[in-house]
């Protein structure tokens, strides 16, 4: 796993694609997310993702706020969207 030893496990938002795909029925990396903290808008593929064995934390590239927190534990997904003010989703995906 990239970043497992000796460095932080920061990747770009595209690294969250697989985890998000298991929950949302559309391509989440192309969704625009507005940060509930600083108000910056970015497509999820261009955010920062911290991916580890515990979960995936998608963070705002401007202020580092956690936009989306996901843990998949024993067949259950836990999803926290408190850090996302708005998700803009194209109807055609």
């Amino acid at each position: 796993m990239q970043g497992r030893m000796g460095r932080e496990n920061k990747l770009d938002g595209n690294a969250s694609a697989g985890t998000l795909q298991a929950i949302f029925p559309f391509e989440m990396t192309e969704v625009m997310v507005t940060c509930a903290g600083c108000g910056a808008s970015n497509v999820i593929g261009e955010t920062a993702a911290y991916v580890s064995g515990m979960g995936t934390i998608v963070r705002c590239p401007s202020c580092d706020r956690a936009l989306i927190r996901i843990a998949r534990l024993e067949g259950r997904s836990y999803l926290d969207l408190r850090g996302s003010r708005v998700l803009r989703i194209h109807a055609d995906g």
Partner: peptide
């Protein structure tokens, strides 16, 4: 080893 697991920036 000593795996690194972080949920945010260092």
């Amino acid at each position: 080893g000593f795996p690194v697991l972080s949920a945010g920036p260092t």
